[in-house]
Design a protein around this nucleic acid. Structure first.
Length: 408
DNA sequence: CTCGCACCTGAGGA
DNA sequence: ATCCTCAGGTGCG
């Protein structure tokens, strides 16, 4: 056995504008990080990580580990290499973090790009720098966001924690607090899971989780979820070889996720964005819907629950504005809109910010008024009439929406 | 297809 | 304190 094996602190050169863990780890992407003595802790892929950061660096260390092979069934880990020595992991922990925080993207460039193409982003973003999309484990993201439905971040975090405690492997401790990894699909597909989760206060989500675990383990082939990962943003272990046949696309991944229980368009987009690496996925929830109405002149919904058409319309609009990483930009504005971060959100929510800012947003398919926008399948031309303004961001924004052929 | 509503729970405000 | 609203929605009729 390996007693404690607390490794030394290591560090990555990162400014707070490159990455702000204080914000990124609390803005409702992951619900698992716990702050203890000014350090953020979480188990990722079988290793207990601690993070802290200063002006110039992200400091990290691995407190303890368990054999990685047992945790990620889909990840092909050579059965022979189950080294316990933390030393083995040292080097690839940096790789793990680099992937987890999506460090291959230059955040300053992305913020610049979004600011150029969107006056509202330009106004809101400066107070919320360093927000990154986390590339999380797809399965964890799936279950966590099933828990998120009609729920608040505080309770979602509690629920995810319970899943880890009761169904995930114990990896180590920080002080007297135990840290478990996220449970595998198999662990959550037991017969009594639903009833137990009910007892634990999961409410109607207990059924969704149990059902989804059953579907993934029993009705889908091995590695099915991983096969939906964006090839341009491969998983950390690079264990998901997609057969050339099923050409994974964002649309396909989204569509597949909808087949699961408790997974609607919003949850599917969360998983696509934060678990499968599809940057164009824009989760439209109540907050984003509010943002769309307040800051982007989307019509007031006549119905309480906005329709699928409106859902897609909002997403398409943001994809048109922000481009390839629209979901990321959305996450920044989402965070700026969170009550928990309201103190940052400017001294006061001045309702006077109308100004000339949103001049180019223009009309945008007034979705309200029940205008049968898509009624007739009018070729593709109909829908939005967002004017193509200045030429600066041409290359990116032109997200070629080919064939809208909606089966007909 | 669209729409309306029930659904579990508990943290946080009035 | 007690009520009420709301929380990163989804499934079903």
């Amino acid at each position: 056995m390996h007693p404690k094996q607390i490794s030394e602190w290591r560090k990555l050169p990162l400014t707070l504008a490159d990455l702000c863990i204080e914000t990124t780890l609390r803005c409702g992407q992951s619900f698992r990080w716990r702050k203890i003595n000014d350090e953020w802790n979480c188990v990722l892929y079988g290793r207990l990580l601690s993070l802290k950061q200063d002006k110039s660096h992200l400091h990290y260390r691995v407190t303890s580990t368990i054999t990685p092979g047992a945790l990620t069934p889909g990840a092909l880990t050579p059965p022979s290499s189950v080294q316990c020595e933390s030393e083995i992991h040292e080097d690839d922990t940096e790789t793990l973090l680099s992937h987890y925080f999506s460090l291959k993207h230059d955040l300053a460039s992305l913020y610049d790009q979004w600011s150029k193409s969107d006056a509202n982003f330009r106004k809101k973003a400066p107070k919320f720098t360093g927000i990154r999309i986390l590339s999380q484990d797809p399965w964890e993201a799936l279950i966590a966001f099933i828990c998120s439905s009609n729920n608040n971040i505080s309770r979602i975090s509690q629920m995810v924690h319970k899943l880890c405690v009761y169904y995930g492997p114990l990896v180590g401790h920080v002080g007297d607090e135990a840290f478990h990894d996220f449970p595998t699909p198999q662990a959550l597909s037991g017969k009594k899971v639903e009833a137990h989760l009910r007892e634990l206060g999961f409410g109607y989500r207990a059924k969704y989780i149990a059902e989804t675990a059953r579907i993934v383990t029993k009705e889908k082939p091995e590695g099915w979820l991983e096969s939906l990962i964006n090839p341009d943003n491969p998983g950390w272990s690079a264990g998901e070889m997609t057969t050339a046949a099923d050409l994974p696309t964002y649309r396909h991944a989204h569509e597949q996720l909808l087949l699961l229980s408790g997974v609607g368009p919003k949850v599917a987009d969360c998983v696509c964005l934060m678990g499968l690496g599809w940057g164009e996925a824009v989760p439209v929830d109540t907050h984003v819907w509010q943002i769309a109405q307040r800051d982007y002149k989307f019509g007031k919904a006549k119905t309480k629950t906005f329709s699928k058409v409106m859902y897609d319309s909002v997403g398409d609009h943001f994809r048109k504005i922000w481009g390839e990483q629209a979901g990321w930009a959305q996450s920044v504005l989402f965070t700026a809109n969170l009550k928990s971060f309201s103190e940052q959100a400017s001294t006061k929510a001045e309702p006077v910010d109308i100004k000339v800012e949103v001049n180019e947003v223009e009309k945008v398919a007034t979705v309200d008024e029940a205008t049968p926008i898509l009624r007739k399948r009018r070729r593709t031309t109909v829908v939005e009439t967002v004017k193509i303004e200045e030429p600066m961001s041409t290359g990116m924004v032109r997200a070629t929406r080919k064939k809208r052929k909606t089966r007909a």
